[in-house]
């Protein structure tokens, strides 16, 4: 057993992705040497060395460059069998969870998804993981050889190693069978959607049941346009067909992190809040001063959004001399 922690690092254009610093920081907390593995021709080793990686395994097989979770898992399982790490860690992104679950299933080992902290105790890991998209925490034991886990995004603050390392690059050539490519990847279709995306917008105007209808969103669109923002909504709004599901914010929709989130006619159910709590500021517009959103928002206007929202737009227009 190498006793190392093997970390799957997603590399694009030779650079580790933005979750890599978080999962490498987590990996160091297990007090074992940290090795990384990536599907890439080359990797910026300095970026890995900053976070204490001793060996960077590279799998250069071109066929594994695309989204082929089953084949990638076959390759990772072979590297794990070869190097016997004490733990295998990946990002708790959608794709990270998919890949790591494939590895765990293939190796017949348990897996814990969306872990936020852990410590190795004898032959088990004691860990804390997120449930309900982070609105509930679970303490748990995880066995397994190796211990297989994914790390919840944005739950671990990245911290460079006290002494940076110079990672050795090790090429690994897995034997991947044709069968592992049985899910055939088809060409990517780009979407024709235009305008500011909900994930990138600095201001998001969100609407809930209180908006009342798809037409009611006209006023929210107007305010969002004035602020250079985008419109989103609660699950009530998408299940009623007032907005497409792509606009849903929350546990089963998007997680957003704008500078300002304006929640109009939204009660503040926890499954909605997990999608918007990363906003720097939240302004609630609601008729009910006792609505749960009041405990989450920074600012509130008590009133009917049908009157408040157009009044805000008019005031902005007025100040801009419109």
């Amino acid at each position: 057993m190498s006793g190392a922690v093997l970390v799957f690092v997603h590399v694009t254009g030779g650079e580790p992705d933005r979750l890599a610093p978080e999962i490498l920081t987590f990996a160091r907390s297990l007090h074992a040497p940290v090795e990384s593995v990536s599907f890439a021709g080359e990797v910026a080793t300095a970026a890995l060395g900053t976070y204490g990686v001793s060996t960077a395994h590279l799998i250069r097989d071109e066929r594994l460059a695309g989204p082929t979770p089953e084949a990638r898992a076959a390759a990772l399982a072979q590297l794990i069998e070869r190097t016997s790490p004490v733990a295998f860690v990946g990002p708790g992104s959608e794709r990270g969870n998919e890949l790591v679950a494939h590895v765990a299933a293939r190796l017949g080992q348990p897996m814990a998804a969306n872990v936020i902290s852990a410590s190795v105790e004898a032959d088990r890991v004691r860990l804390v993981r997120q449930r309900w998209a982070g609105s509930l925490l679970e303490d748990a034991w995880l066995a397994g050889k190796p211990h297989i886990l994914t790390i919840a995004p944005h739950a671990v603050a990245p911290e460079p190693a006290a002494t940076p390392t110079t990672p050795a690059v090790a090429a690994f050539e897995p034997v991947v069978s044709e069968k592992d490519f049985r899910v055939r990847v088809r060409p990517v279709e780009t979407s024709t959607k235009t305008g500011i995306s909900l994930s990138d917008a600095k201001v998001v105007v969100g609407g809930g049941r209180g908006v009342g209808s798809s037409e009611g969103f006209g006023e929210l669109e107007e305010l969002a346009a004035l602020l250079g923002g985008a419109v989103g909504g609660s699950r009530v709004v998408t299940s009623n067909g007032w907005r497409p599901h792509a606009d849903q914010i929350g546990q089963t929709g998007l997680r957003i992190a704008p500078d300002l989130y304006i929640a109009c006619g939204i009660s503040g159910a926890i499954q909605h809040i997990v999608g918007c709590k990363a906003a720097k500021r939240i302004l609630a517009i609601n008729t009910d001063p006792d609505s749960p959103i009041m405990a989450v928002a920074d600012y509130a206007v008590i009133g009917d959004l049908g009157q408040v929202v157009p009044a805000i737009s008019a005031e902005i227009d007025r100040r801009r001399g419109g």
């Binding site: 609105s135 925490l137 001063p289 920074d298």
Partner: peptide, 20 residues
């Protein structure tokens, strides 16, 4: 085979009530 749950708890959140 696990994970084996020990218990569940609420995370600590530090937001205070909204300013009207």
């Amino acid at each position: 085979a696990g994970p084996e749950m020990i218990g569940l708890r609420l995370p600590q959140e530090e937001r205070s009530a909204a300013e009207v």
